[in-house]
């Protein structure tokens, strides 16, 4: 299993992501954004979190024009598996690989804390180790995590089981930290090979550090 992790100027979660996947037994490679191709032995491509290009203009807006993104789009269109975490999710929506967009949090505050999430659809490679309705505790750290999609788009997401995770309270009760439509925290594309979420599963790998719920999430990719 080989995980390739993208690095733009301003990315800051590439080493956490590498540590997380290494701890699960995967080989990893960090790929600088100037690369014009994705390594051929890549089983999973991760667009890691951070602040690519300083979030100038809009989060993820400039990164989508990096040389590597053309290769990423080709890789995804050919069925390659792609995971975008936090800023990576923003980059993938800007690049049109995932539906919707991420707006400024409704409170206008940067949020950095643990938050509970409910699994909505596990019929995909990412969440197959979990059950629908399971609640996981995963850190969030974002300013622009307010997921938006129009009404028709939302209907389509539900019809195709593309809603992966929703924010909730510890007991599964309704709780929406950032104003996201339907409290959506993560989605996938129609063909279920491109995934994006604002929370950071790679920061929830050790119980000692608050939660190890990220293990079950990321493991899905390894047991393909």
């Amino acid at each position: 299993m080989k995980v390739t992790i993208l690095q733009f100027p301003g990315t800051n979660c590439e080493y956490d992501t590498e540590h997380a996947f290494k701890s699960l037994g995967a080989k990893t490679e960090i790929l600088w954004h100037k690369s014009e191709s994705v390594p051929t032995d890549t089983d999973l491509l991760v667009v890691a979190g951070g602040f690519s290009y300083g979030d100038y203009l809009r989060s993820g807006a400039i990164a989508k024009f990096s040389p590597v993104m053309r290769a990423v789009t080709k890789y995804a269109n050919e069925g390659g598996k792609v995971l975008g975490i936090c800023n990576g999710f923003q980059v993938l929506t800007e690049a049109g690989l995932l539906p919707g967009a991420l707006k400024r949090n409704e409170s206008l505050h940067f949020l950095s804390k643990h938050h509970h999430l409910k699994v909505v659809n596990n019929d995909n490679i990412f969440l197959k180790e979990l059950e629908n309705g399971n609640i996981v505790n995963i850190p969030i750290a974002h300013h622009d995590g307010n997921y938006y999609i129009d009404e028709d788009g939302l209907k389509e997401l539900y019809a195709n089981n593309q809603v992966l995770l929703r924010y909730c309270g510890a007991d599964g009760e309704e709780k929406n930290p950032n104003g996201s439509v339907d409290a959506i925290a993560g989605v996938c594309n129609k063909t279920k090979n491109v995934f994006g979420l604002m929370p950071h599963p790679e920061r929830a790998m050790e119980a000692l550090l608050g939660s190890s719920d990220g293990v079950k999430m990321l493991q899905g990719f390894l047991e393909a």
């Binding site: 203009l57 024009f65 919707g100 967009a101 999609i149």
Partner: peptide, 8 residues
């Protein structure tokens, strides 16, 4: 292509 995100 760049200056606006026409989704929002």
């Amino acid at each position: 292509e760049l200056l606006a995100n026409t989704v929002i």
